[in-house]
Design a protein around this nucleic acid. Sequence first.
DNA 1: TATTGTTATACTCTATAACTATA
DNA 2: TATAGTTATAGAGTATAACAATA
Lengths: 168, 168
Amino acid sequence: MSDRQLTGPSTDLGATRIARRERMRRRRQVIDLGVLDAHLGYFVRRLQVWIFQDFVRTLSAFDIRPAQFSVLVVIEANQGLSQADLAGTLGIERARLVRLLDGLERRGFTRRKASPIDRRSHALFLTESGQAALKRIKAAAAEHEAHLTERLGARKREALLSALRDFV
Amino acid sequence: MSDRQLTGPSTDLGATRIARRERMRRRRQVIDLGVLDAHLGYFVRRLQVWIFQDFVRTLSAFDIRPAQFSVLVVIEANQGLSQADLAGTLGIERARLVRLLDGLERRGFTRRKASPIDRRSHALFLTESGQAALKRIKAAAAEHEAHLTERLGARKREALLSALRDFV
DNA sequence: TATTGTTATACTCTATAACTATA
DNA sequence: TATAGTTATAGAGTATAACAATA
């Protein structure tokens, strides 16, 4: 951030240009994407991979991956919800959620309690240490989001966010 | 649907069951995404998963996945390029591209030839049957893209495409 | 020394199927 | 019959490290 001031107003554009040139150099040839250029999925995938990598790198001190983060956040916001509801909300398989929760429970972040209304299901909670950890994890995740804003530009990030929000 | 009429009295039971399930579904609490709602990565991931699933389903007759499609398309548009350039362009690991090409070669779609300028590298080409197959595959991929347009709306899809194009 | 293609390993994630205990 | 959680398995994808041949 601070080094930006030295280069003046064109910093963002300059940084983008430099980054692009760097990517081109690595490629050493201008390669045609062909019909890929008309497929939204290709670009969505590239962005998603970039986001995952930056997320993991930024939160490496916590050893938290995007899926784990989403589970912690949704449990915090809906204490006592069931695994089925959680899986349905996040669009992940119930079978996969089992392992995910096993890991978070082993680390002392979450807990499965007996549901008071349905003996088949579990009510999910964050432990106290889970809540404390999540507080710091969310701060780191916000840092990741700042990287994204830096990379996309605040306007574009906001536009994408509101465009995609009602998709789910 | 039509078999309901044949079952006579049990139609009511079936209808009751369906109505109950519907009530259950509605009764299910609305789940709060918490801070996830401010993370672009979450929504990008959800969209990307949707796209992958629709792509695979739409192209199931060809047994082609997104990564394979992107490899075929870029080889077609840049016949003779090297594996390193292809991997760099698509942002996939060189190690992974090896297996990907093994599979496409085994199916007779692509071919590795000796590079005329660098004895370390391979020059990649589509075979004739690979070109013929890709022609039909691209038509199916366009069908998938139409699903996406249907789901997002043409305007939003176009806006997303042009917003993300210069990200890579 | 650096790069190209390759092999190998570990881990994450998706997609299914099946099982149990409840409802 | 259907649902919640679980176990198991197969396959795709990511991330690394290492190696031989070549630049």
